[in-house]
Simulated assay, not measured.
Amino acid sequence: MGQLSFFSAEARQPCVGDLAGLLCGPGQALGFARGRAARVSVAVDSVVRGRALVVAMGERGVEARVEAGDEGCLQVLTAFRTDLTGLAGQWLDGGQKVVPPDFTLDGGVLRLWALAAGRWVESGYFLGLDADAPGTHEPLRKALASSGLPSTLLAGRADGPALRVVGRRRLERLAELVGRAPRGVADRTWPAA
């Protein structure tokens, strides 16, 4: 086994900033009390994924819960917290979701993105995007490419827009960056080489 990348999720301490991975996908940030508190939430497709996110967020010092959302979907959400205001402020522009300027992806952010919205398909690994924030798609594709993971933007899909990563070397790099699958997470949802 080779040396871990400095940017790997397993080589760095988990931190609140890793929650940006939820916002790379379908997650939402919501400010409250004139910017003195914020909350992060993300819709998920399974209880297992939701529970794994709650554990991952707890490892970052952020308590979260899973609850039923609109149209029978599940949501993972935090309480309104003062330590999330910086993250929300970077990702919101007048209430609209944006990718922060000079945004870079590291293993911790990619780990939460994969956990919230990643999945295998026949042609590679998909990282789900926010269908309601199409302005974030191209900046996220560029950020992924800057981290050594060129991808293809797939829009207009029934299951939502996504970035597709293909190729043995790229998939090995992605697997290295996100680290081992959390306990209970299905193989079909976690990157592997």
Rank of each mutant, 00 (worst) to 15 (best):
R34S: 08
A155P: 11
S46G: 11
F80Y: 13
A186V: 07
G86T: 05
W113H: 07
P139A: 09
D45M: 04
E71R: 15
G31P: 00
P14L: 08
G107Q: 09
A131T: 11
G25R: 04
T152W: 11
A33Y: 10
A193P: 13
R51Q: 15
G108K: 13
S5Q: 14
S5T: 08
G17N: 13
A192R: 15
A114P: 02
A143T: 05
D187R: 08
G108Q: 11
W91A: 00
V62D: 00
L87A: 05
R119D: 15
C24E: 01
V99R: 09
W120H: 11
V165C: 08
Q90Y: 02
G89V: 10
L144F: 11
L127M: 08
G50E: 06
R111V: 09
L77W: 03
P100L: 06
L77N: 06
L84T: 00
A192G: 14
E122N: 04
G86R: 08
A43W: 12
G89M: 10
G156N: 08
D132S: 13
D130E: 08
L140I: 08
E172F: 09
G179H: 01
R168N: 13
G156Q: 06
A186M: 04
V109K: 07
P14Y: 04
G50T: 05
G94L: 10
L112M: 06
P26E: 12
L127I: 06
